[in-house]
Design a protein around this nucleic acid. Structure first.
Ligand code: FES
Ligand code: FES
Lengths: 150, 150
DNA sequence: TAAAATAAGGATAAAAATATCCTTATTTAG
DNA sequence: CTAAATAAGGATATTTTTATCCTTATTTTA
C-alpha cells in the first residue's frame, strides 16, 4: 500500500509528535530505535520532512534534534505522504492506467472510487495530532514490540 | 497501491477473458499490445497465472496461446493477486508494522479497518467475469488509448 | 574559542522490482 | 516426420527502492 519511506515517515512523525517538543528535541538514534526503522535511511526521510511541507523541524548541534511545531501537529496525514512523494494512492488508477478519470474509467474504477474517497478522507481529515493522541490514549503501537507505558 | 506485476496481471486477465476462448487463444504479443504492457515481462506474469490458482490456461504451438476456462472466469480478483504474490494489501499494516491485529493496532488501524474490509470485499466479491462484463458493456478501458468498438 | 554534539548532504552499496533476450520444450499442421 | 509456431524457462540487464557510510555544516556549551 505505502512505500517503506512513507511508512517510516508516518511512524517517525507520530513518534516525534508524541515524545518531542521544542524543548525536548529527539535525536535520530532515539527515533529510529523507537519506531524500528533503519537509522540512516530514517535520517534521509526526516530530511525530506523538514524540507517539504514543514512537517518536521530540526536543529543541529548539542541538544539539537527533531520536533514538531504546533502548526505541524495540525497537518493532515496527507502532508506527510506528500513530503515523501507518496500521494499517488489517492490519484492513480488501480489497474495502472496512466489516467484515472470518470470519463475514461477502467473496469475497477467504479468500485474503487468509494474506497479512494475514503482513503482521501482518512488522509486529509486525520491530523498528525490525531494519530499521536490515538497512540497516547490506547494500547496503540508504532513499533514491533509492546508499547511501554511511561 | 498494486505492483506493476499485479496491474499487468489484472489487465491481461481481463483482456483474455474478454477476447479469448478455448478455441480462440490469444498470443502474448496481442495481449501485451492490447493492454499496453512490456511483452516479455507480461509473458512472465502469464506464466505465474498459469501455474498458480489456474487463473489462465495456455497451450503451446501453432494456434496456441492463452485463454480462460469457465471456472477461471468465476474466480475472484483476489485469485489473480494471489497468483502474482500480491495479496498483502489485505493483510498488512498501513504503517508497515510486522503484524496488523485488533489486539496490537497501530494508530491508523481503526480507520483503516473499514477501508481494508471494503478492499477485501472488492477483491473477493468481484470476479474476473464481472470485470470483463463491465468492460464489454461500457466505455471502459484497459489500456492507455481509446477503446475500439468492434 | 575550542570541542563536542548533532543534523545535513553526498557518495555508494545492496536488494528488490521491472524488463529484455535467448534457448528449450511442446504442439500443430502439412 | 518435419517444420513452423508458440509458450516456458533461464540468464541477464536495467531501474527503482531501500539502506549504509562518511564528510560537512551548524549549534551549543565549557
Ligand atoms: S481508471 Fe482505474 S481506478 Fe480510475
Ligand atoms: S495495525 Fe496498522 S493497520 Fe492494523
Amino acid at each position: 500500500m505505502l512505500s517503506k519511506s512513507a511508512e517510516y515517515a508516518l511512524r517517525a512523525t507520530i513518534y516525534i509528535a508524541l515524545k518531542g517538543s521544542e524543548d525536548n528535541k529527539l535525536g535520530i538514534d532515539e527515533i529510529a530505535t523507537a519506531i524500528d526503522s533503519p537509522q540512516s535511511f530514517t535520517a534521509k526521510i526526516l530530511q525530506l520532512l523538514t524540507k517539504n511541507n514543514n512537517v518536521v523541524s530540526s536543529v543541529r548541534g548539542p541538544n539539537g534534534g527533531f520536533y514538531l511545531t504546533d502548526a505541524a501537529r495540525k497537518l493532515p496525514v496527507r502532508a506527510v505522504l506528500e513530503a515523501v512523494g507518496e500521494n499517488g494512492v489517492l490519484t492513480k488508477c488501480v489497474l495502472g492506467l496512466k489516467e484515472c478519470s470518470e470519463t475514461r474509467p477502467c473496469p475497477m474504477h467504479e468500485q474503487y472510487r468509494t474506497i479512494k474517497a475514503q482513503l482521501r478522507q482518512m488522509f486529509e481529515k486525520t491530523t498528525i495530532h490525531d494519530l499521536a493522541e490515538e497512540t497516547r490514549k490506547g494500547k496503540i503501537v508504532i513499533n514491533n514490540r509492546l508499547v511501554k507505558k511511561k
